[in-house]
Simulated scan of single mutants.
Amino acid sequence: MNDDRLYAIGEVARRTGLSVSAIRFYADAGIVEPAGHTAAGHRLYDVHAIARLEFVGTLRELDAGLDDIRRLLAGGVTLTDLATAHLSRLDERERRIRSRRAVLRTIVKQHTEAEQVILMHKLAGLSDHDRDRLIDDFWNEISDGLDASPAFVDLLRSHRPILPEEPSTEQLEAWIELANLVQDQDFRRAVRQQLHDLCALDGAGVMMAPEMLSAFDRGGAVLQEAHEAQQAGLPSDSARGREIAGRYVEFMRGISGEPDSPEYRRRLAVDVLRVEELHLQSIEEAAAPADPHTRYQSLVSTINGTAQEAAAFMPFAWLSAALSASA
Rank of each mutant, 00 (worst) to 15 (best):
L146K: 08
E94S: 14
L119N: 05
H129P: 00
S127G: 07
R96Y: 04
I97F: 14
P150C: 08
E113S: 12
T112P: 02
N140G: 13
T80K: 11
A124M: 02
L181P: 04
F152L: 07
V117N: 03
I162L: 11
L87I: 10
L155N: 09
L156T: 05
L123P: 02
T169F: 04
D186F: 07
G145K: 06
L134W: 01
S158N: 13
P150Y: 03
R157D: 06
D184M: 01
D147T: 11
L90G: 01
R95N: 01
H86Q: 14
D144I: 11
R95C: 02
D154C: 00
L82A: 12
R98I: 14
Q183P: 02
A102R: 04
R95S: 08
G76P: 01
P164C: 15
D91K: 00
D91R: 07
S143G: 13
R133Y: 01
E113A: 15
R160N: 08
L119W: 09
A83K: 11
Q116Y: 04
D91L: 03
D81S: 04
L90R: 08
L72H: 06
L172E: 09
D154L: 05
S99Y: 03
N140Q: 08
V103A: 02
S143N: 13
A83R: 13
I107Y: 05
L156C: 06
A85C: 00
D136R: 11
S99K: 03
L134R: 07
D128G: 03
I135T: 14
L73W: 01
D186V: 10
L123V: 03
A83E: 09
S127Q: 05
R131L: 14
D184W: 01
V117E: 02
V103D: 00
S88M: 10
E113I: 07
L104C: 01
G125H: 11
P164Q: 15
A151D: 14
G76D: 08
V182L: 07
E165L: 11
E94A: 15
D132K: 11
L178S: 08
A148K: 10
L72G: 03
Q185H: 10
D132N: 14
F187C: 03
T106Q: 05
V182C: 05
Q116A: 14
S158W: 12
P161F: 07
I107S: 09
D137T: 14
L82M: 12
F152N: 02
E165F: 05
F138I: 06
T84H: 09
E173P: 06
H121R: 07
S127W: 06
Q171K: 01
I97S: 12
P150K: 04
Q110R: 09
E94M: 15
I97P: 01
L181C: 07
K122H: 14
D137Y: 05
R89Y: 02
S149A: 14
D81H: 00
N180Q: 12
R101L: 15
L72E: 04
L172I: 08
P150F: 06
V103T: 02
D128W: 01
G125V: 03
S149T: 15
S168D: 06
L156N: 04
I135M: 15
M120E: 06
Q171G: 02
H159E: 12
R101H: 13
D184R: 00
